[in-house]
Amino acid sequence: MTDSAHRHVPVLEFLKRQLDGSLTADTVTHMRYPTAISALLKFRIVEIGEALAVIELDADCAIHGNQQGTVHGGLLCELADAAIGTAHSSVMDIEESFTSIDLRATFLRPVWKSRLSARAWAEHRGRTISHYRCDIQREDGKIVASVASTVMTLHGALAKNR
């Protein structure tokens, strides 16, 4: 099927259809979903809204562990970054893309084996610079990490091929 035969939709609409099962094979958006890293790590988008996303992961220290025998903090950062990126992509126009400027994680408690839920939302949305928060929660309801990130929206030529 050629690009002209595909139906292009905004990212938010694409992800909502993906979640509710109404996405058709000819429907595309200008960003890649699922992302390669999210597919590799088996992240699942479970909720999407404007500048909001929730992503889940079944974490297990036998697979995702560090030297201490707990789930690696880098995996928690990647989960938060994926949730923040998904939340921000939901507000991107077709001529826009984005890049993370920073990511600051505070680790609050360990994880050995648990379904993790990363909830990301915009604290402030600007034309170019936006600030996001993400809390990662274990299935027992306790927050294991709190992450803040600054995202820069790229417009026009700066967004091309990104």
Score class of each variant (00 low, 15 high):
residue 55 I to E: 02
residue 8 H to Q: 14
residue 14 F to L: 06
residue 16 K to P: 11
residue 77 C to D: 03
residue 76 L to R: 01
residue 76 L to Q: 00
residue 20 D to G: 10
residue 50 E to I: 08
residue 18 Q to G: 11
residue 7 R to L: 13
residue 62 A to I: 08
residue 18 Q to R: 15
residue 50 E to W: 11
residue 56 E to Q: 13
residue 46 V to E: 06
residue 66 N to R: 00
residue 48 I to A: 04
residue 50 E to F: 11
residue 27 T to M: 13
residue 19 L to R: 05
residue 27 T to H: 08
residue 38 S to T: 06
residue 30 H to T: 08
residue 77 C to L: 00
residue 23 L to S: 07
residue 41 L to C: 11
residue 68 Q to V: 13
residue 40 L to S: 10
residue 14 F to Y: 15
residue 15 L to W: 05
residue 58 D to K: 11
residue 43 F to Q: 04
residue 72 H to F: 09
residue 37 I to D: 12
residue 13 E to Q: 13
residue 26 D to H: 11
residue 7 R to E: 13
residue 74 G to I: 01
residue 44 R to G: 02
residue 56 E to W: 12
residue 35 T to L: 14
residue 37 I to M: 14
residue 66 N to C: 06
residue 29 T to C: 13
residue 51 A to Q: 02
residue 65 G to D: 03
residue 78 E to R: 02
residue 35 T to M: 15
residue 69 G to C: 03
residue 83 A to L: 03
residue 23 L to N: 08
residue 14 F to M: 04
residue 42 K to H: 15
residue 52 L to T: 03
residue 12 L to M: 09
residue 61 C to P: 05
residue 30 H to V: 08
residue 8 H to M: 10
residue 82 A to T: 07
residue 61 C to E: 07
residue 65 G to K: 03
residue 27 T to L: 07
residue 36 A to F: 12
residue 25 A to C: 11
residue 29 T to R: 03
residue 9 V to K: 04
residue 38 S to C: 10
residue 14 F to D: 01
residue 20 D to P: 11
residue 15 L to P: 08
residue 20 D to E: 05
residue 45 I to Q: 03
residue 63 I to G: 04
residue 8 H to C: 03
residue 63 I to N: 05
residue 34 P to N: 10
residue 40 L to M: 15
residue 55 I to G: 02
residue 78 E to P: 03
residue 39 A to L: 12
residue 80 A to E: 01
residue 25 A to D: 09
residue 21 G to K: 08
residue 29 T to P: 05
residue 31 M to E: 07
residue 50 E to D: 09
residue 17 R to D: 12
residue 80 A to W: 02
residue 9 V to Y: 04
residue 81 D to A: 14
residue 9 V to G: 08
residue 16 K to N: 14
residue 53 A to L: 05
residue 33 Y to G: 01
residue 69 G to A: 06
residue 71 V to P: 00
residue 41 L to G: 04
residue 72 H to V: 00
residue 73 G to M: 00
residue 74 G to Y: 00
residue 75 L to M: 05
residue 71 V to Y: 05
